[in-house]
Each structure stands twice: as C-alpha cells, then as structure tokens.
Design a protein around this nucleic acid. Structure first.
Lengths: 341, 341
DNA sequence: CTGAAAGCGCTAACAC
DNA sequence: GTGTTAGCGCTTTCAG
C-alpha cells in the first residue's frame, strides 16, 4: 500500500488505482506527512530565519527580492519554505527548535541574535546571508565594505569632503540618533558595520576626520526614517554637500527631506543609496546595485545542494556602482575654488 | 528529561540546567521536532498555497500585503508559515501531500487547480481566500462584484458609455487577447470573474451592450501587460473614453500607454484600477481600495482560531471606492452635448 | 506481488 | 521528582 502512494512504478497501474480507490473509500486521507518525515528523515522544507520584524521585511524591497530568489530555488527543488517566527522583542527561541526542516537560511539578523545561536545548534545544514562568515556554515553575501568604498571614492572624486550619513539600525536596541565611533565598531549588523567601515576608510584616506562626520542611525527602515535621519544630520551641519544613506529606502526618504527644505538634488546636495531597488532606479538614485534575487537563489542552491559539503563555502556576489542623477559636484566646490583666496 | 525541555516549570531550575548541560555535553541536539510533531499531532506550522508563479506573487503588491498579514497572524500565534511549492505548470501535487502542517491557507488560485483539490482532501482545517465560497471550508474575501459595480457607477455618472477593459488571466491557459463572453462566464479565477460581472451588470443597466465592450486579457500581471492590454483595446476602438483595469498594476501600465499615445488622463481618457496599492495612490489612481493586509491577517486568525469551528465561516472585508484624479467626464461628453443636433 | 515486523524519536501516562 | 512503557503512522526490509 505504501508502494501505491510512493512508487507508482513498482506495481501495475490497475492495481494501484484499485488500492487508492479503496483507501479513499475507507476514508484514508493519504500518508501522514509528519510520520513519513520521521521515518525518512526528510522534512521536505527549509527554514528561513528573518529576525527583523516581519512587517519591515515585507516592506523592504531588498528583503522581498531575497525571499523571491530563495522561494524560486525551493520551488525548483520541490521543497517547502518555512518562515520561522522570530520576534526580535521576545527571546523565544522555541520556534527554532520546533521547526521541522532539513536546513536553515538565516538572513540579515544581528550576529548576537539568540535565534541565530539556536539555529547553529540544530544538527542541520545552514547558510547565513548578509552575515559575517562564521567559518562553520555556508555563507552568501556581497562585499559591502568594498562596494561602499567605491561609492565613497566616486563622491570624493566629485569633490565632496563635508558629508553626513544615515544608516539603518546597528544593534538590537533602538537608537534613533547619532552614532558614536564605538557603536559603529561594535555594530551587530554585519552589513551596516561593513558599509560604514568602507565609508570611513575612503574618507579617512581623503583626509576627512571620520570621527567628525555626523552619522544618524534609525531603527525603523522606511522612507520616514530616511527623512528624519537626513533632517537630523542637516540640522547638525547645514554645510554638508553629500548625504550618504546605507540603503535606497533611506535615501528616498532623504530626498524627500531635501525637497522639503528646498534643496535641489544634486545641485545643492548629493544623495546616495545602496541596494539598487526599483523605486531608487526610477528616482535616478546614485547607488550600489546588488543582486538581491540572486542572493536568495544562491542561498537556496547552497543549502539544497547535497553535493560534497566538504568545507563550508563562502560566496560573494558581484555588485555594481550606479551613477545616477542624484550625485554631482558639491555646490561651491571645485569650480568656485578659482575664486578662493 | 522530556520535561527539562518542554516543561521548565515542572522541575527545579537547577536540575533543569544540569540535565540540559549533560545532554549538550553528550552531543544531544535537543528533541527532534518531527518526532515531536508526530507524537503531539501538531506541526506548529500552517501551509500557504499560492499557485501563481512565485515570481508574480512576490512582485504583486497586493499578494505581498496579504502575505505580510498572514505572516503577522502566524507570528502572533508562534506558528510557522510554510510556503508550499505549487508550480502551476506541472500538476505535481506531491508537495501538498508532503507538507507537515496543521492547516492550509489557499490564496487566489483558479478554482479548478489540482493543488487546491489536493488541499481539500487533506484532513486539516483550510481557509480559502479570494476564492468562491465552497461551503465546506472557511473563506475570507471581499465583495469584488459589488465593489466593481460601484466603481462602474461612478464612471457611468461621469457620462462614460464607450469603454474598454483590461483584466488579469481568467484561466490556467494563456490567452493574451480579447475575451469572449463565454470565457468571461467560465473564468476560473473567482476575483476576475466577479469584477467583470460587476462591470457587466452596471454598464448593462446603463444601456451599454456589454457584448460589444472590448475586454483584453493578460496572463502576466505587471505594468507591461497593462500597457499592451490598453494598446490592444485602444487599437480596436480609439473612441473609448474610459479604460477600466481589474488591478492597479494593470492600470499603471495602461497610464503609461496612454501617455505614450499622447492621451492626457483624465482629460482625454479615464483610467481606473483595483486594489489600492501604494504606487497607485501616488499616481492618484481612481480605484477600489481593499484591505490586503487585513485579509491575510483574517485568514490566519480564522485558521488558527481553535474555537468552535461549528460551521464554515465566511468573512467579507469592506472596500472603499477611491476617486482619484485619473477619472473625469468623457471628452466631448456632457458639456459638449449642448451643441448636438 | 503480498504480509509481517522493526523501529524512526518523541511524549504522555502511569507507577514508583 | 524519577523510570518505564506504549504507541503516534510511516517506510523499509525480508520472507513468502
């Protein structure tokens, strides 16, 4: 009978039909998937750990792209994708323990997240994404630091020296305000830490005292945060010529704030983002484009690839610097220097 | 020992710690979730069936909003959400059988979808969303027909009689072209069938011969489809004064096509949508707003509500007609009638 | 092709 | 607070 359901080729079609018909008539609903999973040691699903508040994940175009790519990889493999509930407020790790999955993908959680620790204790393959390389599990990501360094170079070449930054949350606690250098170094979000450090390196090399650069952090990730972060930076130093945001969503918000203040972009101020989302493209944003969908797909492939998992693998995807129309030379910059002392 | 993991309160904290420490030292990874699920008869997850090609789902703002609402409800309940792979191309229903879940949510699949049939055979609670009321399982949706009827009334009041329609796919087969009345009636997508029938009713009442109204169907759901559908309709009858689309995404595409032809909206042509997505709002689209997030949340609540599931429940959420700036009186309409014969 | 039996790892129940 | 046991429903194996 098991054969009738699981191995149609092992018995005559006619017999198979008879068995199945009889089973249905007897009210048998088909093999119980859980019992089957226990026996075969395959859950037929992979877990996705997204610690971020779910609302933010589903409103963040980059996260959605990642999810799409991962879902695509799962669909190709005929595997389910289990969204594991992980409320960052509560430290309730039980959901990780309860997840009947063959492996985990962990996407952009703080590196001290207890859910991540719980995943790493589970005896299943794991791939972390947009996280530090743990050495023990597979990883996929991009070179956030290098990409941001390139973007900074572009701004430096344009002549920008007096800048401000708006970044996403750096740790699990809410800090809607300026960031101390200490907090930058200690940031628990790999992506943000590296983007900031790429900026710091490039501008330091250009002779800018990074410790004097205003960096505004925002816990929530939406355009309102981008606007308020930009406002805070501009209030602190109205003379800045460029506003660098660590995501396109924040940058779009910053553009709104610039418009509100009557600042023309890029004539009066340069604004840049990071991610390469659709809305940013439409706005002509200068940014770094990263292949979010491919990232999700790569994570899924890595996890589902039963092949030699000799040593943990680490994949870096390529990014592309997009020079849009929101960046230009600083006002009163190069050209006006001719009139200087 | 089971108690140490599952009932921290049934034994002294100190003993609990000792047991857990020892277990870990012995390399015990914690209770196997699958075995536990078999024993307790609880999978701790609900399945989501989204037959649409996943890429479309993740690019459709309405679907994302639904997903967010559902995920929120699951998070509140500490339940996982399993995305069940259901490629509409293949009729491979095994993934539905393999899903270890305590219930299913089925979102906007054609009513003859084999995956849906497979779900209904599983002995777990199910709620269908944006589907016909099956009478046997819970349902949540909106009054698509009534909402579209109201929208049509608005256009009729403005004076529109010569109209064209662009709609989403009506069945599982690809038909990128005009729709016959037969095909409209036989449409397998509940939502589209009802929106069209609301239109047909209102315009018929206003004396329009519905069978003469050009209705262009598009399989893919994106702005390019909206544009090409609009083009097809406008090529057929350049005299139409209003282009009614069954989704905001299609309407946004139709606006692009109108612009391409040098038609000003709403002066030269009225364009309307359905859903109330963000991008439509920003474009000032006349549309019907539906609470997509609430729909997902309601579906989750219904499924997870263990309470008296006496008879199947049916929930209709309220919609709101949004009169934007893309609808206006027809050109050469009311005001010019004064100069008529 | 059929039938019987073992056992996946756990939890609940009950006896100690 | 501890130990033992039955059995969740399946698949696999092995004997007929």
């Amino acid at each position: 009978m098991s054969n009738a359901y699981n191995r149609p080729d092992q018995l005559s079609p006619e017999l198979r039909r008879r068995v199945l018909d009889t089973a249905r008539r007897l009210g048998y609903p088909g093999p119980d998937p859980v019992a089957r999973s226990l026996r075969t040691r395959k859950a037929g699903a992979v877990g996705l750990l997204l610690t971020e508040n779910l609302s933010y994940a589903f409103r963040d175009p980059a996260a959605i792209g990642f999810l799409e790519g991962l879902a695509l990889a799962c669909e190709d493999a005929g595997t389910g994708l289990l969204l594991v509930p992980a409320n960052p407020e509560r430290e309730d790790v039980a959901s990780v323990h309860r997840a009947g999955v063959d492996g985990f993908v962990v996407y952009s959680v703080p590196d001290d997240d207890p859910h991540l620790a719980a995943v790493l204790e589970r005896p299943v393959p794991t791939v972390v994404c947009d996280q530090p390389d743990l050495g023990t599990v597979d990883r996929v990501g991009i070179d956030d630091r290098g990409a941001m360094y390139e973007l900074a170079k572009h701004l430096i070449d344009l002549g920008h020296r007096r800048i401000g930054v708006v970044c996403m949350r750096l740790a699990r606690d809410r800090n809607d305000g300026f960031v101390t250098p200490d907090r930058q170094h200690a940031a628990h979000f790999h992506v943000q830490r590296n983007r900031l450090s790429g900026l710091a390196e490039a501008f330091s090399e250009a002779g800018v005292d990074w410790s004097q650069v205003p960096v505004a952090e925002r816990f929530d990730h939406n355009t309102a945060s981008g606007a308020s972060g930009a406002a805070q930076v501009l209030d602190r130093d109205p003379q800045i010529t460029a506003l660098i945001c660590t995501s396109d969503v924040l940058a779009l918000g910053a553009m709104n704030e610039a418009a509100r203040r009557g600042l023309r972009v890029p004539h009066d101020i340069t604004v840049t983002g990071f991610d390469g989302i659709r809305a940013g493209e439409e706005a002509g944003l200068t940014t770094v484009r990263q292949p979010v969908l491919e990232k999700g797909r790569a994570a899924g492939k890595l996890l589902l690839d039963t092949n030699e998992r000799s040593r943990p693998r680490s994949v870096n995807l390529a990014t592309e610097l997009i020079i849009g129309k929101t960046s230009g030379p600083p006002r009163g910059g190069a050209e006006e220097r001719w009139f200087g002392p």
